[in-house]
Design a protein around this nucleic acid. Structure first.
Lengths: 217, 217
DNA sequence: AAAAAATGTGACCATCCAGTCACATGACTG
DNA sequence: CAGTCATGTGACTGGATGGTCACATTTTTT
C-alpha cells in the first residue's frame, strides 16, 4: 500500500507521478522497470518517491489495483445485457467492452496483460486474482451456456473457456496493430476510437467464428 | 553470430553452455537475463563467454536461430497432410505438432514465445521473421481455405488468421498448465507426453470449436 | 512567534550488470 | 626444445539500479 503522503499529494502532482509510473510499467516488465527513470520523468527526487511508496513492489501493486478498479468502473459504465440471455450476447458485450478498455486505457491494459503473463518475481493475491479471474469468468459463462442449451452439450467447459479467454486477451492488441495506431494517437482520440466501423466488423467476425465456426456448410 | 571458438568447443562443453543459456533466457526476458548468471551456471569464466559470443545480443540471437532450426527439424519429422487437402486437416496437424514441440522443447518454445511478444530492445531480421512468420502462414492457409471453398466465403482472412494464430500460440501453455506438469518433469518425459489421451481430446475440441463453433444447432 | 510535525531532497551505499584486458595455460609446430 | 598461436581466466571498469539518510524546507499546531 502506498503511504498516506502519496494520497495527501495535491491532485496535479499525484497525477503526474501516476502517469510516469504508468508509462514506465507499460513499457517495461516489472524487473526492467526503473524507479530512477520514474522519478526523472515525474520530476521529483528519489527520496520523495520513497516517502510515497514502501518500495518498487508497492508502487507496482498500486498500479495493478488501479487497473482492476479502472476496469471495473469502465465495465460498469457499459451495462451488460440482461442476465440469463444468450451467452453469445454476453460474449459480444465482453469482447466489445474489453477492446474499448484497451483503447481507452492502453497503459493500464498493458500492465494488466503483463501481470497475466506472470512475469512478476513475487507472489501476491491481487496478481493471482488478475491471473485467474478471466478464466474463472469464462468458465462460468461456458457452464451457463451449456446448462441453458445455447452451447453444444458435448462441449468441454474448460476448453471453451480457454479459447474465449485467449481471444479476449489478445483482441485489443490485434486491433491496435492492425489499424496501426501509435500509443500517442490513442491517448488523444480516446475510447470512441474503437467505435470505428472497421473494428466493429472485426469484433463481430471473431464472435461469428467462435459461434458458428469457419467451415462452410 | 557466435565466434568460431564456440563451434570448436568440445561437444559436452558446448552443450553445457547452451543448456545454461536456454535456462536463463527461458526464465527471463532479454533485458532481465544475465550473462553473469549464465557463466556461473555453466561453470566457465566471464572472459571465456566473450570468447564465444560477441555480446549478449549475439548469444540471444544464437538461441533464436536455434529455436527456428529445431522447430523446422521437429516439424519436418512429422510430415504434414498432403497439400491441397482440407484446411482443417492442416490445422489439426499444425496444432498437434506445435503442442508436441512445446512439450518436447519447452525452453526453446518459451524463448520463441517471448520473441513473438516483442520484448527485445533491438531490431533484427530473425526476430522479425519469428514475429510475422506465424501470422503470415495462417493468413495464407485461410486464403487457401476460402479459395477451396472449405471455409465460409464471407470470412475475413486476416481475422481468421488472428484467431488461429492466437490459439496456436497459447495452446501449449494451456495444456501445460492444465495438466500440471513441472518443467523438470517435462524434460524427463519428453515429447511422447503430449500423446496422452487427455491432451489429444483437448486439441480436438479446440479444433472442433474453430471448425464448427460453439452454438448448438 | 516559536515549536513541532510533515514533507522534500540529492548525495551516497551496496549490489548488480555487460563488457574488457593483461596475463596464464594449454596445444600445436618448426 | 623453443616459439607461436588459440583458448581460458577473473579482477576490473563504468554505469545503472533499488534503497537510505542526514539535512533542508514547508506546513501545521501551539
Amino acid at each position: 500500500m502506498p503511504k498516506d503522503t502519496f494520497f495527501n499529494l495535491p491532485e496535479e502532482k499525484r497525477q503526474g507521478l501516476t502517469q510516469a509510473l504508468l508509462e514506465e510499467f507499460a513499457e517495461n516488465d516489472y524487473r526492467s522497470a526503473s524507479v530512477s527513470r520514474v522519478v526523472e520523468r515525474a520530476g521529483i527526487a528519489k527520496g520523495s518517491f520513497y516517502q510515497y511508496f514502501e518500495d518498487k513492489k508497492d508502487c507496482y501493486l498500486y498500479l495493478l489495483r488501479l487497473a482492476v478498479d479502472e476496469k471495473r468502473a469502465f465495465v460498469s459504465r457499459i451495462p451488460p445485457p440482461e442476465h440469463g440471455l444468450d451467452v453469445f450476447a454476453t460474449l459480444r458485450w465482453l469482447l466489445d467492452t474489453g477492446a474499448s478498455f484497451e483503447f481507452s486505457q492502453p497503459q493500464l491494459a498493458k500492465i494488466g496483460y503483463r501481470a497475466v503473463l506472470g512475469e512478476a518475481p513475487f507472489p501476491d493475491e491481487t496478481l493471482e486474482m488478475i491471473r485467474q479471474g478471466g478464466m474463472a469468468y469464462f468458465r462460468q459463462l461456458a457452464a451457463q451456456g451449456v446448462a441453458a442449451g445455447t452451447i453444444r452439450p458435448e462441449t468441454d467447459v474448460e476448453t471453451a473457456a480457454f479459447v474465449w479467454n485467449v481471444i479476449f486477451m489478445n483482441l485489443g492488441q490485434h486491433l491496435l496493430g492492425r489499424f496501426g495506431m501509435a500509443p500517442q494517437e490513442l491517448l488523444e482520440r480516446g475510447a470512441q476510437a474503437v467505435s470505428s466501423q472497421e473494428m466493429r466488423t472485426v469484433i463481430f467476425q471473431v464472435l461469428d467464428i467462435l459461434e458458428n465456426g469457419l467451415r462452410k456448410r
